[in-house]
Design a protein around this nucleic acid. Structure first.
Lengths: 336, 336
DNA sequence: AATTGGCATAAAAAGCTTTTCATTACTATT
DNA sequence: AATAGTAATGAAAAGCTTTTTATGCCAATT
């Protein structure tokens, strides 16, 4: 069933049917009625592929994420915001997950190009530099989310991971903690991994505190990994940090679980600081003291920014946005 | 830049370029080299739209979800599994969220049809009957997830919400609880809402326990809604249930939070049972006693099932799959 | 030497729309 | 009454592939 069949059934030309469907020009009352009758009867839907091919516009946005488990990432909140903004503007979403594989990301970019998406929302984790050669003369508008590129000038929307982590660490220091354990993420995640670690380190430097390598551990976003990292930090009963900065809330939850199992009360025996302010954070026992990040704004802004980038009539384009953050003092940290 | 340009640059015909790209027929060494050189130099990528139009196959699966907030739903785990299976089979994902609006769902189905997706994964919440007329003679293969249709014979992959909820309630009864509060979901969610409520009711009937309307409350998946529901259940200090069955873990977490604030210890003063077994459940304080649902299997099976449905060479098609569940006895329920 | 067969390649059709350009029929104006 | 103008409609091109059919050439066979 195609537009030609509809035209035949209604006894008009293809052009007339197209005009009725798209309301793009005047059609006589008589013809319109006949066409609409056929349309309704057959349930005909125009083939978007043909239209998109002709107009060179797909109304589709590629969303490239990089997670091992979606539910463990604060990113699903941003995605939620993105779907809302894009749907409101009649755009569809093509979702792909690279799972932290650089070559997979490359292949996804190629797919997006072949599929002729109108724009790309790129939740970058640190492989952008590997894609430099390709991205350099890439024609499709891209907004990087979560990480700014140091190699290519590309629009981005980010959390201020560095300063937020610095703020978190400084807060712990101000509370009297001078021996702070760290549960980080692999450095190849340049935002959640590298930047947050940098923030932790700078806070120490500026307060003339040494960084103890034994206090540096690493997780992978999951609760379990936070648990395991905490196990290492608490291994030696005679040499334990007085506070721990977990760079994601889920890892903080794992860490607290571990502390509990070892008979340590949070925050009485040890303080734990999170990052992200996931929904459960406020309802955990104890309620997590953490950095609240505006994931919703990040999703919304990224989508809006991309939309404006794609709009050729729009002269004043915003190309960078740094989302606000705030420290949520709740119940998992106490003064030493 | 299109295939014609490549052909001109390489001094060969369009067909030859196509043959080189798709490796679909023999090409002389000489011609192949020239074409490949141009391909590399220009970074040309074939236009999928044209190919898909010609072949009437898009290698795209429409995934229709129905959530208010993705991160509050156990569904993101299923989506994770789906992306893996589909990518492994070279399919792309078009994601759309109806946000519990029946007409929005209808419009998404139309979009999917226009976009010519090869198949649809439909996280149904209860509107299928409204779409009966349309779905009846829908040509694209669909797998319903989370809900089986009582109106159309459609392949499905579900959790056994009804029996799982019955099991959960029976467990509470066996533990000596005869006055069990219920935090449900709107009935229009026919799986999480209706089925789980039915299970709760049947367990009561079979044990000759009355159902007290004052014990029936309703949430919306969110932690906050569980908190508010619990507030109602605990309103009257002289007339409180001894246990509460929250039909999602996040609502259970909200409920426990509320109980704590009112000075009630879980499970010592009141028991709370969850449903889903979200990642945090095991690490919550107290660890949630809950129904573990195999969200990963649901996503995987749904994708596999759809793939087999789309494969015309595959004669033996599985069309129904009911995922396993199990009761996780942890720390939020104790015998009365 | 002439015909056949096979191989590499080119040409053209098909897939379905939108849009421009051309045509027809009719109304209005001089 | 003839011409200009307008409104509705139809024909055809363009958008880019893949795939089928056709062509040309050379080697091999009779």
């Amino acid at each position: 069933m195609n537009i030609k069949d509809v035209a035949n059934c209604a006894g008009v030309s293809i052009s007339t049917v197209s005009r009725v469907i798209n309301n793009t020009a005047k059609v006589s009352e008589d013809a319109r009625k006949r066409v609409e009758a056929v349309l309704k009867e057959t349930g005909y839907r125009p083939n978007s592929l043909a239209r998109e091919l002709q107009q060179n516009k797909t109304y589709t946005i590629g969303v490239l994420i990089c997670v091992t488990e979606l539910s463990m990432s604060s990113l699903s909140q941003s995605i939620n915001a993105i779907t809302d903004v894009l749907k409101a503007n009649n755009y569809n979403i093509m979702l792909a997950n690279s799972r932290y594989h650089a070559d997979e990301e490359l292949s996804i970019f190629n797919t997006f190009k072949e599929k002729r998406v109108d724009g790309i929302l790129y939740f970058a984790a640190g492989f952008a530099k590997k894609h430099y050669a390709m991205l350099k003369n890439y024609k499709i508008p891209i907004v990087m989310i979560g990480q700014k590129s140091n190699y290519i000038d590309m629009p981005y929307v980010i959390h201020d991971d560095f300063y937020a982590a610095k703020t978190a660490t400084e807060y712990l220091i101000q509370m009297g903690h001078h021996d702070i354990g760290f549960i980080g993420l692999p450095d190849y995640d340049e935002a959640a991994g590298l930047e947050r670690k940098k923030g932790y380190k700078l806070a120490h430097e500026m307060n003339n505190l040494p960084i103890n390598p034994n206090r540096m551990t690493e997780g992978d976003f999951s609760i379990e990994s936070g648990y395991e990292a905490m196990k290492i930090l608490l291994k030696n009963p005679d040499d334990r940090p007085t506070a721990v900065f977990a760079t994601t809330d889920f890892m903080a939850i794992g860490a607290i679980s571990c502390a509990n199992e070892m008979g340590l009360k949070v925050p009485d025996d040890i303080s734990v600081m999170g990052f992200d302010d996931v929904h459960v954070a406020a309802f955990y026992q104890p309620p997590l003291t953490t950095i609240h990040t505006d994931t919703h704004a990040v999703g919304t802004k990224a989508a809006e920014l991309l939309l404006s980038l794609m709009d050729k009539d729009n002269p004043n384009k915003i190309t960078k946005y740094v989302a606000s953050y705030s420290l949520m003092e709740r119940g998992s940290v106490r003064p030493l």
